[in-house]
Amino acid sequence: MEIRLGDNQYGKAETRLVRVDRHPDRHEVTDLNVSTALAGDLAATHLTGDNAGVLPTDTQKNTVYAFARDGIGAIEAFAARLARHFVDTTPTIHRARVRIEQYSWERVAHHSFIRNSGTRTTTVTYDGAAVTVVSGVDDLVVMNTTGSEFHGFHKDRYTTLAETDDRILATAVRADWRHMTAEGTDWNDSHREATSHLVDAFADTHSLSLQQTLHAMGERVLRHREELAEVRLSLPNKHHFPVDLSAFELDNPGEVFFAADRPYGLIEGSVVRDGAPEPGLAWW
């Protein structure tokens, strides 16, 4: 029987980084969680324990902090700088993937901040030739208190769910969108506008299913942002069930709900621009 080493990578996960830019009139905070993953000619360390080609994960962590000293800017650009550095300076490393989560803080005074909802994300992959940039948002919690229905679904002997023409629709959006190119993009503007279109589509769509809403959200982003090739969404259905108050001789005209945290429906899918280039590197 022949046994061989399969695909492998290694890196430093979740390096926490906070940078404070101290301007005379205000402070600005950049709060990041950075994960790096490197792949290449690494068979020796797996098979014989020869670490000559291994860039230590501690070095990867230190590089993140050192690069932050020069400024961070848009997280897509920062991730690309790191990915290129690891591949271009380490002979055994042929691919670097850098994922960054950015936690948003709103300044409420000169040096005082409050944490915002929603986490900005990016995953940048570089193989020495091509760069793939994916931007996104995670844990963006949204809710429509009406304008959502769910009926006409397939039923079998185990179906107990009642059809409804009026329900609460809530979800915590995870969305990732792939850029056509890694060059010439205003990352901050692109992210701000893409996120805004996601939220607008959620609010504007009279939903007959969360799947329909998913498609409407992805389509809205692609129609308004020509630099994007594909949007992938993961939408957990945050169920809200009307509470039966009849035992207390009370009615409930759609006002009192139980917010269930689990189990939950999980709706996932992608919306793709026709003719858009396929990703040269895996990104999902």
Rank of each mutant, 00 (worst) to 15 (best):
A79M: 10
F78I: 09
A80I: 04
T123M: 04
S112H: 14
F113G: 11
Q102A: 12
G118F: 09
H94Q: 15
T125E: 01
H94F: 10
R107A: 15
T125Q: 00
A96N: 05
T119F: 04
F86Q: 02
T92L: 12
H110M: 05
E76L: 03
D88H: 08
Y103M: 11
T89H: 14
T122C: 15
E106H: 10
T90D: 01
R81Q: 15
A79P: 13
I93Y: 02
H111N: 15
H94N: 12
R84C: 08
A83E: 02
T121N: 05
Y126E: 04
A77N: 10
S104R: 15
G128R: 12
R97L: 07
G118H: 09
T122K: 00
D88W: 05
E76T: 03
F78G: 06
T122W: 00
H85Q: 11
E76H: 02
L82G: 04
P91A: 14
H94G: 14
V87E: 00
N116I: 05
G71R: 09
Y126N: 03
F86V: 02
V124A: 07
R81W: 05
E106I: 12
H85V: 09
I72R: 04
T125R: 01
H94C: 08
T92H: 13
G71W: 11
S112E: 15
G128S: 08
V98Q: 03
S117Q: 14
F113L: 08
G73M: 07
G128C: 10
I93D: 01
T89E: 13
T121W: 03
V87G: 00
G128A: 12
T119V: 15
T121V: 10
N116S: 13
Y103A: 09
S117K: 12
H94M: 06
E106T: 12
G71Y: 06
G128I: 10
E106Y: 08
R115I: 08
I93W: 04
R99H: 12
T122F: 00
I114Y: 02
P91S: 12
A83K: 01
V108F: 06
V98K: 02
R97Q: 14
A77I: 05
L82K: 03
V108Q: 07
T92I: 06
I93G: 01
Q102N: 06
R99T: 14
R97N: 04
V124G: 08
T123D: 09
R95F: 02
G118E: 10
T123N: 04
G73P: 13
V98D: 04
R107P: 08
H94P: 07
Q102M: 07
E106L: 14
D70R: 14
Y103S: 12
F86C: 01
D70L: 13
R99G: 05
A77S: 14
D70T: 09
N116D: 14
R84V: 11
R81H: 10
A79N: 09
R107G: 10
V124P: 02
R115H: 11
W105R: 12
I114P: 01
I72A: 11
D70A: 14
V98I: 15
I93R: 01
S112N: 09
G128V: 14
W105I: 10
T125W: 01
A83Y: 00
R84M: 10
F86K: 03
E101T: 11
A79R: 08
R97S: 11
G71C: 11
F113P: 13
